[in-house]
Structure formats: C-alpha cells, structure tokens
C-alpha cells in the first residue's frame, strides 16, 4: 500500500514540477494523470503488468471520492457572505448549465456512436 501511495505522490510531484517549469496551462495532477496512464500502458506493453499496489491504492481512493469533496464543500459556510448577494443568479446558472451540459453530452454521444457504427 505504501508503495502505491508513494507512486501516486511521485507522479503528482513530477506533474507539478513540469507545469511549474514549462508554465503549461494544465494543472499538475492532470499532467501526472497522463504520465501515469502512459507509464502503465508502457509497462503492460513490456509485459510488466498488472500493478496491484498502485491499482489497489487508486481503487481505494476513487471508491471514496465523494469524501474528498466534503472539506471544501463545508467552505460554503465561510463563503456564504460572498455568495449571498448573488445566490439567485448562481443557483440559476448552476442548475441550467448542469441540465444543458447533461443533455448536450448524452445526445452527442448517442448521435456520434450511431454515426460511427453506420460508417464502420
């Protein structure tokens, strides 16, 4: 387990460092995600996989992903002063944008799948 944690942190460290050095407009953890994905694929193509340590830790983290949002979510208490004056507009944008995004994504996915199935 310890090695898995260390591996995730190590990749994040590399990602953050790369972003700092190159001023890439992408957050460090995202670069780390791509790097880890490439490393895992490379490992598999060289016949080294699976990687139970890192996969185990990743699964445990992702199984409780919701928990990780709780501390920042409670921040609504201290930000209420900032948000109160705009609460109505914020709620409107939040809900409308979620509905529009859900609909646009699901329709595009289904339409694109049909199109490529017919073509291929």
């Amino acid at each position: 387990m310890l090695r898995g944690i260390a591996a995730l942190l190590f990749f994040q460290l590399i990602g953050e460092s790369l972003v700092f050095l190159t001023k890439l407009p992408v957050p460090g953890p995202v670069v780390a995600l791509v790097l880890l994905f490439c490393a895992l694929q490379l490992g598999r193509s060289m016949g080294r996989g699976p990687f139970p340590r890192i996969e185990g830790v990743a699964e445990a983290l992702l199984a409780n992903l919701g928990l990780l949002f709780v501390p920042a979510g409670v921040g609504i208490v201290s930000l209420w002063g900032v948000m109160r004056s705009e609460a109505g507009p914020i709620a409107l944008v939040l809900v409308a944008s979620a509905i529009i995004t859900l609909a646009a994504t699901v329709w595009t996915f289904i339409a694109a799948r049909r199109y490529f199935d017919r073509k291929g």
């Binding site: 994040q12 953890p29 994905f37 895992l40 928990l67 709780v70």
Partner: peptide
C-alpha cells in the same frame, strides 16, 4: 479536514488506473 482535502490531488492522478 485538510488531510482529506489534500487527497484530491493524488485522487486525480489515480484516475489513470481505471482509464488504463
């Protein structure tokens, strides 16, 4: 709670695993 919050970074990196 910051100790839980900190894990958001590693959890983002961890998404590489289901993708792989």
């Amino acid at each position: 709670a910051q100790f839980v919050h900190f894990l958001l970074g590693p959890a983002t990196v961890a998404i590489a695993v289901p993708l792989y």
